[in-house]
Design a protein around this nucleic acid. Structure first.
Length: 306
DNA sequence: AAGACGAAAGTGGTTGA
DNA sequence: TCAACAACTTTCGTCTT
């Protein structure tokens, strides 16, 4: 980001910016974009003379320090007396759970904010590297999470859930969306929970999600399907056209539209993929592709006939 | 045999009273 | 809070390549 003074958000143009001196950030109230973050030196405090020092010192100073001390407490204990599949657990386990929770409670109150953040940051780190996310996304997710914790929004919610929600949000803001399905799969959390948490956090923090566009998915799905650049840009063209002709895309899931466009493009350019393949990659069914496909061909006068 | 097509019933989420 | 509703899925039978 540029070092100049900004008084409006480059993303959405909003002039409502929050200056957070404690974190040395300027955050847009409209879209949540971190307009300017300056300034804290996140690098090592001292020069390192060998790799051991490097390891230790490179973690000094910045929030990254928080990611260290987990002490093996890598499991959050849910407040429900249920096991993973939702069944009641035995009374012996309940007693144990009670002790564990109590213990965890004690640790929490002693140092709750840092501890919470520490867990969340490692969680988000793992998640985002498995999701192949660029660093700026990861950082935005961390910022969101931090604000959520400070506002007490994590109370009654799992750290994992809020972490996943933050990541989901950050992805969409940067136009590299992952679907809720992908995130919930990767995080081994249930989709509904993440969705709910996501909406809640966004509302409470006054963040307006950037609506995700089918265009955002083309590159990723396209490369996963090993489609050529021509096919992808054809698909892009089809989507753009479809968006222009209102009614074809509104109310439809972006992944479905993207999938259909890719499928059509692959057929037109003779690089045919089966509906099944495309459907699988895009996380929709063949039926949905067919429906979108039909609508698009109809309204855009595409000659798909071979 | 595999892919494409479409009808019909089911599912989960949103909306509006 | 609940019912209506649209989008999407599941399932299944049929047609096409």
């Amino acid at each position: 980001m540029g070092g100049t003074n900004l008084d409006e958000c480059p993303e959405c143009g909003s002039r409502s910016l929050s200056h957070d001196t404690e974190r040395a950030e300027v955050v847009c109230n409209g879209c949540g974009l971190v307009v300017r973050e300056s300034l804290l030196d996140c690098g090592p405090d001292w020069r390192a003379f060998d790799s051991e020092q490097m390891n230790k010192r490179s973690h000094t100073g910045a929030p990254l320090t928080y990611t260290l001390h987990d002490l093996g407490m890598s499991t959050i204990i849910d407040w429900r007396n249920k096991d993973a599949s939702g069944r009641e657990i035995s009374s012996a386990s309940k007693a144990q759970m009670y002790r564990l929770r109590k213990w965890q409670q004690r640790i929490r109150v002693s140092n709750s904010l840092e501890r919470n953040l520490a867990r969340a940051l490692t969680e988000m780190d793992a998640l985002s590297s498995r999701l192949d996310l660029p660093k700026n996304v990861r950082e935005m997710a961390a910022k969101i999470y931090r604000r959520a914790v400070e506002k007490g929004l994590t109370r009654g919610r799992s750290i994992e859930g809020v972490s996943a929600a933050s990541i989901y949000f950050a992805c969409r803001q940067y136009g590299v969306p992952r679907t809720l399905d992908e995130i919930s799969d990767t995080a081994r959390l249930n989709r509904k929970e993440i969705g709910k948490t996501y909406r809640f956090v966004a509302r409470e923090l006054g963040l307006t999600p950037r609506p995700s566009s089918p265009l955002d998915y083309i590159e990723r799905f396209g490369s996963e399907l090993r489609l050529s650049g021509e096919v992808r840009s054809k698909a892009r063209e089809i989507v753009t056209q479809a968006i222009k002709q209102m009614g074809v895309t509104s109310g439809r899931g972006p992944t479905g539209i993207c999938a259909a466009a890719l499928y059509i493009a692959s057929v037109i350019l003779g690089e045919r993929k089966t509906q099944k393949e495309v459907a699988h990659v895009a996380g929709v069914t063949e039926v949905t592709i067919r429906n979108r496909y039909k609508e698009m061909v109809e309204k855009l006068n595409l000659d798909v006939a071979v």
